[in-house]
Amino acid sequence: MASDCPRARGRLPWDRSRLSARAIAARLHRSTSTISREIHRNGGGEAYRAVTADEAATHRARPPKTTRR
């Protein structure tokens, strides 16, 4: 999938605009603390990349629980 979409390249539109965590949170309708945690958990403001963060979250996720019959 060849795309010029910033998200496909792992960068989001606010990466270049240097918006604050509060401004990003307002645009996404999320808590400022949620955005701040996400940024810090995944390398900080300068190193954050959406694709890398998504892959790390998938890796950190707990395996699904087995179901009972």
Rank of each mutant, 00 (worst) to 15 (best):
A50P: 03
A50W: 05
R18M: 00
T52F: 00
R27V: 13
R49E: 01
S36D: 09
T32V: 15
R18T: 00
L28N: 06
S33F: 13
R41G: 08
T52R: 02
A25D: 10
Y48W: 10
V51A: 03
P13L: 07
L19E: 02
A47C: 15
E46H: 13
D15H: 15
R41V: 07
L12Y: 07
R37S: 07
R37C: 04
G44A: 12
T52D: 01
R49C: 03
T34R: 10
T32C: 14
A50H: 08
G45K: 14
V51E: 02
G43R: 05
R22D: 04
R18I: 01
L28Y: 02
G44R: 04
A26H: 13
R30T: 06
R30Y: 07
H29K: 08
L19W: 10
S31R: 13
R22W: 07
P13E: 04
R30K: 08
A47Q: 14
R37K: 07
Y48N: 08
A23I: 09
I39L: 10
G45C: 14
Y48T: 09
A26P: 03
S33Q: 15
E46P: 11
I35W: 00
V51D: 03
R30E: 03
R27T: 14
A47H: 15
T32R: 15
R37P: 00
I35C: 02
R30I: 06
P13N: 04
H29D: 01
S33C: 12
R30C: 09
P13S: 03
A50N: 06
T52H: 02
R37N: 04
I24Q: 00
T32L: 12
S36W: 07
R37M: 01
